[in-house]
Design a protein around this nucleic acid. Sequence first.
DNA 1: ATGCCGCGTGGGAGCGGTCCCACAGGGCGA
DNA 2: TCGCCCTGTGGGACCGCTCCCACGCGGCAT
Lengths: 349, 349
Amino acid sequence: MSPAEQPQPHRTADVRRPTLNAVAARAGVGRGTVSRVINGSPKVSARSRAAVEQAIAELGYVPNRAARSLATRRTDAVALVVPDAGTRLFSEPYFSGIIRGVSTGLAGAGMQLLLVLTGDEKEHGRLAAYLAAHRVDGVLMMAVHGDDTLPDRLEELAVPTVLAGRRSDRERLGHVRADNRGGARLAVRHLLAGGRRSIGTITGPLDMDVARARLEGYREALREAGVAVADDLVAAGDFTEEGGRLAMRELLRRHPELDAVFAASDVMASGAVLELRAAGRRVPHDVALIGFDDSIVARHIDPPLTSVRQPLEEMGRTMASLLLEEIAHCGTGRREVVLPTELVVRASA
Amino acid sequence: MSPAEQPQPHRTADVRRPTLNAVAARAGVGRGTVSRVINGSPKVSARSRAAVEQAIAELGYVPNRAARSLATRRTDAVALVVPDAGTRLFSEPYFSGIIRGVSTGLAGAGMQLLLVLTGDEKEHGRLAAYLAAHRVDGVLMMAVHGDDTLPDRLEELAVPTVLAGRRSDRERLGHVRADNRGGARLAVRHLLAGGRRSIGTITGPLDMDVARARLEGYREALREAGVAVADDLVAAGDFTEEGGRLAMRELLRRHPELDAVFAASDVMASGAVLELRAAGRRVPHDVALIGFDDSIVARHIDPPLTSVRQPLEEMGRTMASLLLEEIAHCGTGRREVVLPTELVVRASA
DNA sequence: ATGCCGCGTGGGAGCGGTCCCACAGGGCGA
DNA sequence: TCGCCCTGTGGGACCGCTCCCACGCGGCAT
């Protein structure tokens, strides 16, 4: 029995996969032609193309990514950078929704998604170098802080970058965000339509653009209804439950007659509910409450929370397509996209 | 002015990064030696090593991953496959916790994490081929269903694989899971210690190993306390809120005197709460309730839910190290690891 | 018939690493 | 003194793809 006839050990992973060369040989054409077919070049005759496609199918050929990447100096991969310091972020529907959109948006283009969790913003120096060195074609960043320097570094290194949300209203990088201002306006209009007149708001940290935009929307809605905008109806929170609680307490102290609150996040609203309950106010009977994000807590707190929903999956898809565009056109056309928000009415208002 | 002196356009990304060759030249050694230093080979003299290290530092050299991958036939990347059909999965702390653990576990080994969301189990055929073709060094799978064929395919293709949770008690693939049985036991013991005697349980789908294990733990705890285990105190849920609600209704119908319930997930427990409230039972006064997962809803429903917590981050880290081991030792030593659970006591029991 | 154009095409030369073979040179025993 | 081994070392030959140059060949105008 010749060695060739011996049964091979069962180690399929070590079996050499067919190469482009093998396809060329089988199709009876040159390597160049196969490459052209794979990359969709128009300069291939119909018969060569057919022969190549058949050979590919017969051999089950799949291009080797590393080899292509080495030759083209592209990686066909983008990194999704998720700051994960506060454990909470990742588990929000915000993230899962956006990630899902990103994933579908990239899959269509044959791009791989590299997940990079970064605990500490201090590593962002190394991180930028890392990303540049490993030549990801682009970077998507979630939850960027106003003072985060990673985006700037990436810009210097000319790495195409798209952010989820902007750092400020002077953001130079491409980004996608929800219409925070419009969403807040919807919420407050709803409260006004319900006959509420003494409407407070619990804001996020005002060094964050989202927080400012939502506050802005609150003010606009009041203004357009001809209701006076009192500064002491605004209490600053920090997007945490405890912060929402404290802000609510402060609002009640300043305005015991308060009959509605717009909280800039569901989590803060859930804190507010606790405080309202402790103060003996019923929701929504005494005080109507609206949150923002339509997160998982909104559906589960008592009473279920009316909230502003963002089109998360679409935001993710849009981020993906903006990035692909930026990669293709090499930095031109970095744009911003604002997607509409929607009010989800539940029992709390 | 010669062309060379003209200011370059600002496109840092196109600047050729230093190669291994450049390092060798600068250090005055051969390419082989540089390669050895980078890969930590012991057969390098101290002076060569020092020279190379200095050259690397001076040039800011970082190895090109694609080139290495092409030469070694490894990718230094693993895929994390997340079935995302039910939008809920990703947003559970379960996922974020495990992903964080996986991320830290892999980062230490210089492995990249490829995120692959798969909506439809029907694509798993293509997916296996895809993963094999792109030569990820290994695969991590979350939330595997008992009938999922992807793990088997990967095993056939000899792709190192580690699962989060097992498909059945005859799982052949390496996996990491929490001590579900022990956790359930803890929960039911706590109910017994609180003086409850008529304790029902809402199970998950019994074709899933977690659901069976948690039911088993429930039974064990009753048995060890000498309490009779009645089959009609067991109601099947499906890990959804609505399922929990219906199961609760059924339990109340069968056993109006019920004074405690162990639900095999927080989400089902949150459904049970709604049903209990509708039936006029107070939690925990009339009926004590314990959930499983210590998920985000546990903290936010009313009353806050006593629940069983799994060491998610450690599970993730363990998955990473199991996988790295399997990759290194080429398939040997696929093991299972069971990590302890913990009862988090809140107001509901 | 002759030149020219242009489409398809084959294949050489990289891309930047790793692997491994061959070989230099110093220390040692015979 | 001569061979021997053994440690470090340099560099050729790939890995599998893309890029691009050069060339064959048919159709068209001259």
